[in-house]
């Protein structure tokens, strides 16, 4: 008889080995893990809810903080335009203590105070507050403008030392005018001369 023919006729007898029931259990687990992964979906949904809740809480927290900051700014602006010099001073000091970021609206208000306030102490405190942002071009330009227009000696000296501290060479023209003005106090002139020397170096 032909060997192949014999084997094909008895094919089932060649498949006599049997897998154990232990292996069946192993296979069931493998099949479930590979093709029927349900728990992961639930885990993902669970994590999504946690992330959503965290975002919500963070949003509320940020919202409350923003509202607080807006309230503080409102109070500050009110103080800066108060009739009382003492209240205006208080506002300028609180700005100096609490603010680290440049707020354009507040800076413009301070610059206005620098040019228009009737109180010398308020102006001096304003200059100190503005010097917190030495790289701000608006502040630098307005200090030079104020230097040219200012008549109160103590404020002049403060402005002179400020432009010297900032090494603002553009202030040399204003300093020269101060030195040449016959009405300038001698102590102011000598401060201007010192600043001029400093800027020329």
């Amino acid at each position: 008889m032909d060997l192949k023919k014999y084997i094909q006729e008895h094919k089932n007898e060649f498949d006599d080995k049997k897998l154990s029931t232990d292996f069946d259990a192993v296979f069931k687990t493998a099949l479930k893990n590979k093709l029927h992964q349900k728990p992961t979906k639930n885990k993902v949904v669970y994590l999504k809810y946690i992330a959503l809740a965290a975002c919500l809480i963070l949003g509320i927290f940020i919202g409350v903080k923003i509202i607080n900051q807006q309230e503080i700014k409102k109070e500050l602006m009110a103080n800066l335009s108060a009739d009382s010099a003492g209240v205006r001073l208080e506002g300028i000091y609180s700005f100096s203590d609490d603010y680290t970021k440049e707020d354009t609206q507040i800076i413009k208000t301070l610059i206005k105070i620098l040019h228009t306030d009737s109180n010398g102490n308020v102006k001096i405190a304003t200059i100190d507050a503005l010097l917190k942002f030495p790289t701000n071009e608006l502040i630098r330009k307005n200090l030079i403008i104020a230097l040219e227009k200012e008549t109160l000696p103590l404020v002049q000296i403060k402005l002179i030392t400020s432009v010297s501290f900032l090494r603002e060479k553009r202030a040399q023209k204003s300093l020269k005018k101060i030195m040449e003005n016959k009405q300038t106090f001698p102590i102011v002139k000598s401060n201007a001369a010192l600043a001029m020397n400093n800027l020329k170096q």
Partner: peptide
């Protein structure tokens, strides 16, 4: 992807595949 159908197929052919 019906699990019961897959297990039925497995039980039908597992020994044949194992012997091969």
């Amino acid at each position: 992807n019906v699990y019961s159908a897959q297990m039925q197929v497995y039980n039908l052919y597992k020994n044949r595949l194992y012997n091969s």
